[in-house]
Write a protein that binds this DNA or RNA. Structure first.
Length: 301
DNA sequence: CTCGATCCCTGGACGC
DNA sequence: TGCGTCCAGGGATCGA
């Protein structure tokens, strides 16, 4: 499940291996996850890949009509690529047979093919001219690695949603997904159902620090390989070995040995330590009768 | 504004 | 061995 660290890893790999190459042709398979497939076929051949960067969970393939994309002669057009859950983008020898679920093949001028494979097709590819790109990118929130303390504080204060939901909201912060949300909350001892605006100043600082630390450490280890994430060289990441909460249901908390719990928050599995990350009152089972019946009973299970 | 539900999609795990 | 069922989850969308 590619989140910020995994996408960063792939983008860096591609920057090393395919930046500067010219796209000769484009071959499409299934296109229901592509915004404008015909435009890919029309616009891409002849353009150069000037640079590959990460933007949230997107990869941004910057294109140029010139061989040297170093200056602003770049067309400004870009390919926006989201890996969804199971997307892969990596170069291969063009002669190598391509696997099932290979939906886009960019033939490069050095005999290789940049291939996009995605079994579930939860990903997205869009060819965007400069103006549309800016508009598209404008929908997203701050980069979690760049956001400052004051801005983070303001963000939390202005949302009454659960902190987990806020972390996952790409229009609030771009790039955080389920794994790193849970990991940063565990480190910060904050329950995923806490209301963002209710966090103390100290908690907000702690959370921002831990979120950034988790993301940086994960990038250094080339991401987490949970299901089938592989970097651009086809190598798995190592960060899954460092997970302290995510995927550890019933396993002992690394701090207090209490069994890690799993609950659905913001529609996603959320893992947390019930002792280190105390639940807010608002997280108690919501009953439609709660307004009138204020009884409390012993915790069940 | 915020929530949950639903859908998209396929493969892997699991039970029988 | 094979089949049915459930689950994973990023994101869009819709109704409450």
């Amino acid at each position: 499940m590619p989140e910020l660290p995994e996408v960063e890893t792939v983008a860096r790999g591609l920057q090393m291996t395919v930046a500067g190459r010219k796209i000769i042709s484009v071959t499409l398979g299934k296109t229901d996850f592509i915004d404008n497939p015909a435009e890919l076929e029309q616009q891409l051949p002849g353009q150069h890949i000037s640079r590959i960067e990460r933007f949230g969970k997107f990869m941004l393939v910057r294109l140029s009509r010139e061989a040297d994309g170093s200056n602003s002669a770049t067309s400004g057009d870009s390919l926006l690529v989201h890996l969804g859950m199971t997307g892969h983008l990596s170069p291969h020898a063009a002669a190598e047979p391509f696997p099932k679920h290979t939906h886009v093949r960019f033939l490069l001028d050095d005999g290789r093919e940049l291939r996009y494979t995605d079994a579930r097709r939860f990903g997205r590819i869009a060819y965007l001219a400069a103006e549309h790109l800016l508009k598209e990118l404008g929908r997203f929130g701050a980069d979690p690695l760049e956001i400052g303390e004051a801005e983070f504080e303001t963000l939390l204060r202005s949302h009454n949603s659960r902190i987990k939901a806020l972390l996952l909201d790409q229009t609030a912060l771009r790039g955080v997904g389920n794994i790193y949300a849970d990991e940063s909350l565990w480190r910060s001892r904050i329950h995923p159902m806490r209301i963002a605006s209710n966090l103390s100043v100290k908690e907000a600082r702690t959370l921002r620090k831990n979120l950034q630390a988790v993301l940086r450490e994960a990038i250094a280890l080339r991401g987490s390989s949970i299901i089938d994430f592989l970097d651009a060289d086809g190598e798995p990441g190592e960060y899954q070995r460092r997970h302290r909460a995510y995927g550890r249901e019933r396993k002992p908390c690394y701090r207090c040995k209490t069994g890690i719990r799993r609950a659905i928050v913001a529609g996603r599995s959320s893992y947390f330590c019930p002792k280190c990350q105390p639940a807010p009152r608002s997280a108690r089972k919501r009953s439609k009768r709660r307004k009138t019946v204020t009884h409390r009973r012993k915790r069940t299970s």
